[in-house]
Nucleic acid binder design. Structure first.
Length: 288
DNA sequence: CATCCGTGGAA
DNA sequence: TTTCCAAGGAT
C-alpha cells in the first residue's frame, strides 16, 4: 500500500479552504452544528445559515430551551428539515445527559439523534482531535480511485472505515489532517464528475490513474425524480408552515392548489408522523 | 441492504 | 430542459 498520508498532509497545508469550522477555537458545538448542516447540503449554502444559527444559539442548552418549531423555522431552506428536528433533539440530549457539553466519546456521540458513523467521528476528530477514521462521500471516492482503481466507490459500507483507518498516521494530530485532507481532495480535486488529476498530490500513486482511468464504477443509482414526488409535496407544505409560523395554517388552506389531493394529504400525515408538524383543531403548525 | 428524505446550482 | 450531485442518517 503506497503512502498516501504524507503527500495528503503536505497538500492540505497549502490548499485547505479557509472554512469557518476550521478556525481554531470554533468549538465542538459549532463543529456539531456545521456537520448537521453539511449532511447533503453544499458548503456554500451552509456557511451563512451556520453563522446565524450559532449567533442565535451559542450553546446546546440555548437551543434545547427553545421549541423544535424554532429550529425548523431557522433551518429555512437548507433541505431535509428533519435534520433540524434531530439537531434540536440532540441538543436536548446533550443538555440532559452530558451537562450541556458536546460529548467527545464516539459511542456517546453515536447515541445522539441524527448522528451516525460520519458525524460522530467528524466531531471527535475535528472538534476534539481524537484519532479515528472519518469517512464521507468524498473520502470514499478518493479511496476507491487511489486504492481500488475504480472510478466510483461502491455502496457505503462499514468496511470504508477500515480502509480509511489503514492509511491514518499514528499521531492523532496528523491523522486528523489526513481525515480532513481526504475529504478536501475529494471535494475540490478528485471530484465526481471531472477530476483535476493534474492538481492531485497523489496522482503518482493512484491505482485508477495507473490503470488508465477505467470506467469500472457501476452506474450510480439514479436519484428518484423530484418533480411530482412526495418529497416535493412535503417540501411545499412545510414551506407554507415556515412562512406562516408561528401561526397555524388551516388544513383547507394548505397548498390547496396542489394537483394531487391524495398526495397532499399523504404529505401532511407523514410530516405529522415525523414530528415536523402538529395538527391542532383543523389546522397545522410547526411542532412545539 | 435499499429506500426515503429537500433544495438549489451547475453541467 | 433534464440530469447530476452535494461533509448522511434512519428505518
Amino acid at each position: 500500500m503506497p503512502d498516501l498520508a504524507t503527500p495528503l498532509i503536505a497538500w492540505y497545508r497549502v490548499n485547505a479552504r479557509d472554512l469557518p469550522w476550521r478556525r481554531p477555537g470554533f468549538g465542538a458545538w459549532g463543529v456539531l452544528v456545521s456537520e448537521f448542516m453539511l449532511q447533503q447540503t453544499p458548503v456554500g449554502r451552509v456557511i451563512p445559515h451556520l453563522e446565524a444559527w450559532l449567533t442565535r444559539w451559542p450553546t446546546p442548552s440555548a437551543l434545547a430551551a427553545d421549541a423544535p418549531a424554532e429550529a425548523v423555522h431557522q433551518w429555512a431552506n437548507l433541505g431535509y428539515p428533519r435534520r433540524a428536528l434531530w439537531l434540536h433533539r440532540a441538543a436536548v440530549e446533550i443538555r440532559d445527559r452530558h451537562g450541556g457539553i458536546v460529548p467527545q466519546d464516539v459511542d456517546a456521540l453515536l447515541a445522539l439523534s441524527g448522528i451516525g458513523d460520519y458525524t460522530a467521528r467528524a466531531v471527535a476528530v475535528f472538534a476534539y482531535g481524537d484519532r479515528h477514521p472519518v469517512v464521507d462521500t468524498n473520502t470514499r471516492r478518493v479511496l476507491a480511485r487511489a486504492i481500488e482503481g475504480r472510478s466510483q466507490p461502491g455502496p457505503p459500507s462499514r468496511r470504508d472505515l477500515d480502509a480509511m483507518a489503514a492509511i491514518l498516521p499514528a499521531r492523532s494530530d496528523d491523522a486528523a489532517i489526513v481525515d480532513a485532507a481526504a475529504m478536501e481532495l475529494g471535494a475540490t480535486v478528485c471530484t465526481a464528475r471531472s477530476p483535476r488529476c493534474g492538481a492531485c498530490p497523489i496522482a503518482d500513486r493512484c491505482a485508477w490513474r495507473a490503470a488508465g482511468y477505467p470506467d469500472t464504477g457501476e452506474e450510480r443509482r439514479r436519484q428518484a425524480r423530484y418533480e411530482g414526488s412526495d418529497r416535493q409535496a412535503r417540501g411545499a407544505v412545510l414551506r407554507v408552515l415556515r412562512d406562516a409560523a408561528p401561526l397555524p395554517v388551516r388544513l383547507e388552506d394548505l397548498v390547496s392548489d396542489w394537483p394531487d389531493r391524495l398526495q397532499r394529504d399523504r404529505a401532511i400525515d407523514s410530516l405529522i408522523v415525523d414530528g415536523l408538524a402538529e395538527a391542532s383543531d383543523g389546522a397545522l403548525r410547526l411542532p412545539r
